[in-house]
Write a protein that binds this DNA or RNA. Structure first.
Lengths: 140, 140
DNA sequence: GCTAGAATCTCTAGCCACTAGAGGATCAAG
DNA sequence: CTTGATCCTCTAGTGGCTAGAGATTCTAGC
């Protein structure tokens, strides 16, 4: 277990520059180096990077991941805080889905109404140009 | 109709710095200036900015908006291209919705299974730490 | 005409989470 | 000992803005 960064990347699915970036922002610790100044990693980093990757895939922000990582280091603590981070993230995801759904509806309607003729008759252009009182006006 | 930038902002819902930014990236033209070097706008810019805002609200990228704007200037052209931009954007929105829904499912399950006890028993932390063969692994 | 305060100007830097590329050093296999 | 893959650091770029500094200009009231 003395992996170079490329091997760590292969095993975790996190790209090499991203690993270095995570080190830079302090999301993972700086590992030991070879005599020739190359990073060498162990099992700890595989786990940590996998954790980070899963959390990113679930859409957690880096700052939240920082907190979740800190919690995972304190197994006896209450998981109330982890729960609340996840909860509020779920709400955020719900908001995004709802917004996209409304948007999708408008898009689909617009496309549907397009008669595939000339620009001057096109609902797509028309809707964009003059859209004074539709739902999307109130999308944040 | 010789509006200062703040008034244009008020009428279109696009913030002042954003208007200047749009000018900088060439999304809108540089307007005439007063003797004191302040921008003054007319009806054209109101329409154009409204178009841009609507398109942004619908999630179109700036480069696509550029194309849509160019099309709207050629009323006799076919709207095939506008249609295809909108179509592919719709597909992209569908992809995003689907991705968020899968993600939401995982999040909700995770939270649901959390016993609200200690970190060492917490499904949230556990799922993140060891998540080897779940759907989210294959989310791009 | 004068003054105060609101609005405007330019410019730089920051946001997020990376990604790309230059230019050079190091490693492992043959 | 050479070759080619991998690694290093550093800077800059992505998208679509947003924030702030410090200076100027406009406008309304007196």
């Amino acid at each position: 277990m003395n992996l170079p960064i490329g091997e760590l990347a292969r095993r975790t699915g996190v790209k090499v520059p991203t690993i270095r970036f995570y080190e830079q922002i302090g999301l993972i610790a700086a590992p030991p180096r070879t005599e020739g100044n190359q990073r060498r990693y162990g099992k700890t980093e595989i786990d940590r990077l996998n954790f980070i990757r899963h959390a990113r895939e679930l859409g957690f922000e880096v700052d939240h991941i920082r907190e979740l990582l800190a919690m995972s280091q304190e197994p006896q603590a209450s998981c109330h805080q982890a729960d609340s981070i996840a909860q509020s993230h779920l709400l955020e995801v719900d908001r995004r889905i709802e917004k996209l759904r409304r948007l999708r509806g408008e898009l689909a309607r617009m496309i549907d109404e397009c008669g595939h003729g000339r620009i001057c008759d096109c609902r797509i252009i028309e809707v964009l140009a003059d859209h004074g009182h539709c739902a999307a006006d109130h999308v944040a």
